[in-house]
């Protein structure tokens, strides 16, 4: 079996398992899993930049929020139906990431991290500033009637599950195609050795900018779909915490692997779900896991699989 066939089978297999789970899992987990799949899509977007291009952003929440508000604000204030509103969400993410990328990519390393953090903070504060429209921290709810489109009702749990799966599966297979394409291989080359990639004649800035825009747009897709499926938009999704979480998911699941973001998001979601049953200080767990991962398991779960089981894991 060729590496490509193996990779396609693995990822289609994951999608099939998630499809089957809908019929097996108790109802309580349907909502959770839908959320995990949407957040995993966000993490996949993050991973394209962090895991595959080697650029550590601390500001991806602004892209997630761009999608979320691009969708939710057009529905709430302009009365748009979900399809064009979703598109507005994607577009907001694409435009914002192109802008931020063009500026932030003039810096490297730690400065890049801080610049993205600062831009994201500015985006968060901007949402607070326009509280009249965004309802700030408190956020606002999208009514069921506003979310129905083409006879589909995203507030129905089963529908919601399958919509989340559809988006997740699409982004997963797109990512698989991307990282195996010539463009994706150049991103990996840049991650591995930027100098060498440049001296092979690759335009580093253009490739990085492309990565930022693809990554930002995928994150925005997750944000827009989140608003659609869960009918809510709030400023906390633009806060620092939501920039840190995808980093945590990806580190845990394995940076630079396609299944890593999903594994990380799933694991963290249930970890927090369980801990928050005991204490309101559940973010302590997030902190401790971040420290432990950095100290003891840099590769994450996916990285371990790659090291021990299958070197070709995409």
């Amino acid at each position: 079996m060729t590496e490509t066939a193996k990779a396609v089978i693995l990822h289609l297999g994951l999608i099939a398992v998630l499809f089957a789970l809908q019929f097996v899992l108790p109802a309580y987990h349907h909502g959770n899993m839908a959320r995990v799949m949407v957040l995993a899509t966000y993490a996949m977007g993050y991973n394209l930049l962090f895991g595959y291009t080697g650029l550590l952003s601390l500001g991806h929440a602004m892209f997630f929020a761009a999608g979320m508000y691009g969708m939710a604000l057009t529905v709430r204030h302009l009365g748009w139906t979900p399809p064009p509103a979703l598109l507005a969400g994607l577009l907001s993410g694409a435009v914002l990431s192109a802008l931020v990328g063009a500026l932030a990519l003039r810096t490297v390393g730690v400065a890049f991290m801080i610049v993205t953090l600062m831009f994201s903070q500015a985006a968060y504060l901007t949402i607070l500033y326009f509280t009249t429209w965004t309802r700030g921290e408190e956020g606002f709810v999208l009514q069921q009637v506003q979310r129905v489109f083409w006879g589909i009702d995203p507030s129905d749990p089963t529908t919601r599950y399958f919509l989340a799966l559809l988006v997740f599966a699409t982004c997963l297979m797109l990512s698989l195609w991307l990282v195996r394409s010539g463009f994706g291989k150049v991103l990996i080359a840049i991650r591995e050795n930027e100098d060498r990639a440049q001296m092979l004649g690759y335009d580093i800035f253009a490739h990085k900018l492309g990565a930022v825009v693809i990554s930002g747009t995928m994150s925005a897709t997750a944000g827009a779909v989140y608003a659609l499926l869960f009918g809510y938009a709030g400023a906390s999704f633009a806060g620092v915490q939501y920039s840190i979480l995808p980093l945590l998911w990806v580190l845990l699941g394995g940076a630079g692997t396609l299944i890593g973001p999903f594994i990380g998001a799933l694991f963290t979601f249930y970890l927090i779900d369980i801990t928050s049953g005991y204490t309101s200080a559940y973010m302590a767990v997030v902190g401790a896991v971040l420290i432990a991962l950095t100290l003891f398991a840099r590769q994450g779960i996916g990285g371990e699989i790659r090291a021990r089981v299958w070197r070709g894991l995409p």
Binding site: L56, I244, L247, G287, L290, I291
Partner: peptide
């Protein structure tokens, strides 16, 4: 940076 973010939440 990642580790001090972790420290931030723990503290």
């Amino acid at each position: 940076i990642v580790v001090t973010i972790g420290l931030l939440y723990v503290i």
